[in-house]
Nucleic acid binder design. Structure first.
Lengths: 228, 228
DNA sequence: CAAATATAATAGTATTACTATCATATATTA
DNA sequence: TAATATATGATAGTAATACTATTATATTTG
């Protein structure tokens, strides 16, 4: 990614953590290693005790940063969506043509993730894997409404809203801009998952990317022929 | 639903259970009450111990039917998809026009669930709520590939495949029939969830149903104008 | 009626998800 | 430089979870 990003910090709702993990060395190790561990063993098997052993620190010290592992997941996924949002805004900001702009936006949010050297303690490729496999668990809980009220999903909602607005800019009379925007984000995670585990349920594979599918889907819905 | 269904039994992969819950009174109570409890308290808080207390039975007896609660969830969701599949096949079987047929199929799989008197111990409305809130947890695990190999998702896959075929019948040159079919099923659950918890992320609400959105989405993708 | 089967009761285990307390190391400031 | 604040570590403890094992008691079936 661009060098300009080097000075950027993804800012996350302070209620998610007890102590900002970006503020200390231990905090950064918690983030760095939790990404590795959750992508390795899955969120269910991951515990603060295991994380402590791995980073040579104590369970109780980790609890001083996050109330529980659910909050840590909210932190990681918020960071991911914030990072995507930054790329989206950065890349589409100067674009004038709404069709090209939306196309670019879809490309950014549906493509396979590449490493970003701007954040050395975060492995974005593995974090993307975590988002694909675990994101829905962060909101499919009995506490969604309370968590939503506490603002734990603001970044994600803002991202959907931005895409929704881009959709409206292309076709103001389209009736489902928010539903289509949420379908792109959530559906993209799902297609990436299917191509890894249920190949018969998707047409995405080596040569066909989820991006191709969603660009086709969106512009057909908006009745815009892309090349003509 | 139709009286014909009265004699129908949804058949589920025998590897999912240790003893068929449809074969005994206790088994049926396990199914009946687990649906009530999981929809009330969520899958995370639900335990066999609590279920035992509620049905006046013993934890250990429930373990003779299901290895663990994950298997029970697989059972419940498989039953749900089998029930939906039955309705799909039953309702579209005699239809000749591929467009009308696909439209009917989308209606069936995306509509809000209504009670079905044919299965007295199963509350389909609450089961649908469980599928919306918990289904993804049944496959977003480290064991997906093994579970898939064991055939725990066959009914769901068959349902996606049926819809995919209907899509191909409408437009044989459409390039993403499987992705679109999986988007309809998974996306429908998601839109129903959003309308209950994240209203700003969807255009579905009282007057606009997910069905309306998906019919528009699908037929635009297939370049078929519905009325003309 | 005997034998098989289903269910219930009880107990026990390792692990999880914490909370609490106290000790020690390091950094800040008076 | 000493006093103090802050961060981290070590240890212990608790209630609940997710089981397994064993034994007892009903109930069904041959």
């Amino acid at each position: 990614m661009d060098r300009l990003l080097q000075s950027v910090k993804i800012s996350i709702n302070e209620k998610i953590f007890l102590k900002d993990p970006q503020s200390s060395d231990l905090g950064k190790r918690i983030i760095q290693e939790s990404i590795l561990m959750i992508s390795e063993m899955g969120f269910e098997s991951f515990t603060f005790r295991k994380l402590g052993m791995r980073i040579g620190s104590n369970e109780s010290s980790i609890y001083r940063y996050f109330e529980n592992k659910h909050k840590l997941l909210l932190y990681l996924t918020s960071w991911y969506w914030g990072w995507l949002e930054y790329q989206l805004v950065f890349s589409t900001n100067s674009m004038a043509d709404p069709v090209e702009k939306l196309k670019k936006a879809i490309e950014i949010v549906t493509r396979a993730t590449e490493e970003d050297s701007a954040f050395s303690h975060i492995n974005e490729v593995l974090l993307n894997k975590i988002v694909i496999n675990e994101y829905s668990k962060s909101y499919l809980t009995k506490e969604v409404d309370a968590d939503n009220k506490d603002g734990y999903f603001v970044i994600y909602k803002r991202l959907v809203s931005r895409i929704s607005q881009m959709i409206q800019a292309v076709n103001p009379s389209y009736r489902y801009p928010s539903s289509l925007a949420s379908t792109i984000l959530e559906g993209s995670l799902h297609q990436h998952f299917l191509k890894d585990h249920f190949t018969s349920l998707t047409n995405c594979h080596g040569n066909v990317a989820p991006t191709d599918y969603f660009i086709d889907l969106v512009f057909n819905s908006l009745n815009k022929d892309l090349n003509g």
